[in-house]
Design a protein around this nucleic acid. Structure first.
Length: 425
RNA sequence: GGAGAGAUGCCGGAGUGGUCGAACGGGCUCGCCUGGAAAGUGAGUGUGUCCUCAACGGGGCACCGAGGGUUCGAAUCCCUCUCUCUCCGCCA
């Protein structure tokens, strides 16, 4: 959520900034309701003040054995008036709050303007693209030949956009997850956490998936509003809901492996083949909560933490700065890391690293006690995939295939594969 | 699934209708004491929001799990929900 004060005092500037996201703000709609709200709130508070004062007078009067019926009569009038203004106030605040929940974060100045992913700006590239002197296979074909990747079986079990893995491929997938977790814990100082995969609506509102993007989620058919998590970001960031941290708790750095569930509504016909876009996939997520002054530096660090995994796996990638049109709802700035996929002859997103500034923290009420001021202040939240395991598996199958019907296992994964150096088909 | 108990500030814990943002204890912070420490001792110590002040500060409103209700007045009474704990049953 954006700072309400900013909306009240700098509305023109906010509207201009959000305009970069091709969003039109109805300034008059807001200022009218905001003015009403303020007026009604002041009125209600004054009436409550009168009521509280009279209440004390009644208590004291009764104790002294005096007649308090006059004050009681006055109270009836006050309460009548208060009831009216409270009801009206409630209408306006509900309306304003609902509206504010639909406003996305303000893009940072370093975010390029643009409408589609075509306008994203490549920041850097790493690794050399492989040169194959034989017809390159896609991960779908390799997986099938290995007998380890099956989409028909999962279609039978569940439907489209699900993968079934078996044998060495399933183990390689698991090895990737273990390796990423271990590395981020040992080398980057993250704390491993295990969290629920089902969350309530409040958690999703705090991280920004709700109320606007409910159609992207799998909602359980229970009485209470339960959803499958679309990313570990939701439960992990919500660990800090309603928490005021001491300085020594910061920065908080979590690494978490979870499955992720996405309805992929609106992506019909997109990436239908293979395991690029699935309803269910595994991801190792990095989440940080930091002091505001540290968040921009942290975004660079966190992105590099994710990149490091690709470097150790020797997978070529590039980092792009998402343009305003491609930027996520809650994010102020996002670096996507895109891995090279020879089977598609293109780069594909494998990680998304974002700085949300205080946007999520405001909804979460995630704060820290600033020792300098002695006051609680909002934290900044960041997260990034480190990495999406399914897509990393795809990248390995495609980049490390050879003309001998083999896939070479990256060295860092071999300890997790019982020393296995190649998968053969 | 059945039966019961509970939810109060950083923690423990009192408070069953009025002057309660909340006793008391612990913790923590600052000070005194001390060669230094412990013990002792004094003071302070919630959050949000609005108004006010040059500043220090001062003031209003709200918050005792959440939401509703009763009442002139609710931490306290009533209803609903959520969560926690204990026992029984079932179970990975």
């Amino acid at each position: 959520m954006l700072n309400p004060k900013l909306l009240r005092t700098e509305m023109d500037e906010v509207a201009r900034q959000l305009g970069r996201r091709a969003l039109k703000i109805d300034k008059d709609w807001f200022s009218f309701r905001e003015q009403k709200r303020k007026q009604l709130q002041t009125a209600a508070e004054n009436l409550r003040n009168q009521r509280n004062r009279n209440s004390k007078r009644i208590a004291q009067g009764k104790a002294a054995g005096q007649d308090v019926s006059e004050i009681m009569d006055e109270m009836i009038e006050i309460n009548e008036e208060l009831g009216t203004s409270e009801a009206e106030l409630e209408n306006y605040t509900t309306e304003i709050n609902a509206w504010m929940l639909t406003l996305p974060n303000i893009p940072h100045e370093s975010v390029p303007d643009g409408s589609t992913e075509e306008d994203n700006v490549v920041i850097r590239k790493w690794g050399e693209l492989p040169n194959f002197d034989f017809p390159v296979l896609s991960h779908v074909d390799i997986g099938k030949k290995l007998g380890g990747l099956d989409f028909e079986k999962s279609a039978k079990i569940s439907g489209s956009r699900f993968a079934t893995m078996q044998g060495q491929v399933a183990r390689l997938h698991r090895a990737l997850i273990q390796f990423m977790l271990d590395y981020h814990v040992a080398e980057h100082g993250y704390v491993e956490v295990y969290v629920p995969y089902i969350v309530n609506d409040a958690s999703l509102t705090c991280t920004g998936q709700l109320p606007k993007f409910e159609e992207d989620l799998f909602k359980l058919a229970t009485d209470s509003p339960y959803y499958l998590i679309p990313t570990a970001e939701v439960p992990v960031t919500n660990l800090w809901r309603n928490h005021i941290a001491n300085e020594n708790e910061l920065p908080a750095k979590y690494v978490c492996h979870t499955p992720c569930f996405r309805s992929e509504a609106g992506s019909y016909g997109k990436d239908t083949r293979g395991m690029i876009r699935q309803h269910q996939f595994e991801k190792v997520e990095l989440v940080q909560l930091v002091k505001p002054e540290a968040s921009w530096r942290t975004l660079e660090e966190l992105t590099q933490h994710a990149e490091k995994i690709l470097q150790l796996l020797d997978l070529p990638y590039r980092v792009v700065n998402l343009c305003t049109g491609d930027l996520g709802f809650a994010s102020a700035k996002t670096y996507d890391i895109e891995v090279w996929l020879p089977g598609e002859n293109t780069y594909r997103e494998i990680s998304s690293c974002s700085n949300f500034l205080d946007f999520q923290a405001r909804r979460l009420k995630a704060r820290w006690k600033n020792t300098a001021t002695g006051k609680p202040e909002l934290l900044h939240t960041l997260n990034g995939s480190g990495l999406a395991a399914g897509r990393t598996l795809v990248a390995i199958l495609e980049n490390f295939q050879d003309n001998q019907a083999r896939v070479h296992v990256p060295e860092v994964l071999r300890p997790y594969m019982g020393g296995l150096e190649t998968l053969s088909f």
